[in-house]
Design a protein around this nucleic acid. Structure first.
Lengths: 159, 159
DNA sequence: TGCACAGTTTAGCCTTGGCTAAAAAAGTTT
DNA sequence: AAACTTTTTTAGCCAAGGCTAAACTGTGCA
């Protein structure tokens, strides 16, 4: 039976010491890597959501939902196109490529797991949505699995 | 006309519907805001840690631990100085101002709560450290409080 | 003392992701 | 069809945060 409280050696000591420099550097590098991809993922996820819910993804709607100007969106769309994540013909709606769809689906799933986890923890909906949006890109697969399991138990148990 | 934007409170539907555009935009805005401050906070936190543990904070050490070049650190130090977070004389070690110390302390605390929470959840130490580094800046006060409480219970209960 | 090396700083390049302003295309209304 | 509005695109500005290369300072050792 896996348990939640199976943490490592004496936690009271571990916080006060710094990790070795190389490990420390890898931690920050992981954060920087996440930053590089996360905006891309957010756009792709949003485009996927818009396609599903509204049937089309227009630059205006993306801009309104991202809270940025259309010019910013236009340039980002070009970048997504360059990276083979979307297809778009001038002055037409935007669609996801196969790769784009895969990314959108993964993002959506990941986002959902984090959001539900936060709700399961007892975080109110509005706060959970904001936090999930930011946390989503910094949660490893390992942690994501644990969050998923936690949520499942919480929902089964609290029935 | 699309109807997806005016969704009711029905909880089973909430995941599949998009939030209203303005709320959606505020979520992304919160993430962008966090990004603006988080690197600053990371530097200040690291400088505080180095001062505590090594007695001084040298640019070389900061660079090694952040995993960036010294030139990058040098410019960041200048920014921190401009913002009244550190004091530094040319070719000398770096120190925190009162404001810097406050920020470092808050960051350290926040970081600690998230890290311990992840450990309490059952995440292994190395993974927890990486995830905490990224998540730290995206966790609201509300959620932080809940995480803290969760950890406390877990540690008391699993004793 | 003087020289070499380590550490720091400066200068300047690149990409990203905001922005505004203005041009161009599409859509709507009269 | 012409005129007006909305949407999209393009051009160009700015700050942030990486980088390299080179200049400068300080320290330690022969």
């Amino acid at each position: 039976m896996p348990t939640y409280s199976d943490n490592g050696p004496d936690p009271s000591e571990q916080d006060t010491n710094l990790p070795p420099p190389e490990q420390h550097a890898r931690q920050y590098a992981a954060v920087r890597d996440a930053h590089e991809t996360e905006l891309i993922e957010d756009y792709v996820e949003l485009i996927g959501d818009l396609l599903d819910h509204a049937g089309e993804a227009r630059a205006t709607d993306i801009a309104a939902r991202m809270g940025v100007r259309q010019a910013t969106v236009a340039r980002m769309i070009r970048r997504l196109n360059d990276q083979g994540l979307v297809t778009n013909e001038p002055y037409r709606s935007i669609f996801l490529t196969e790769r784009g769809r895969t990314m959108a689906e993964e993002s959506r799933k990941r986002h959902g797991v984090v959001l539900q986890f936060l709700r399961s923890l007892g975080v109110d909906d509005a706060t959970a949505r904001i936090d999930a949006e930011g946390m989503e890109h910094h949660v490893s697969e390992t942690t994501l699995g644990i969050m998923h399991e936690f949520t499942r138990r919480q929902n089964n148990g609290g029935d």
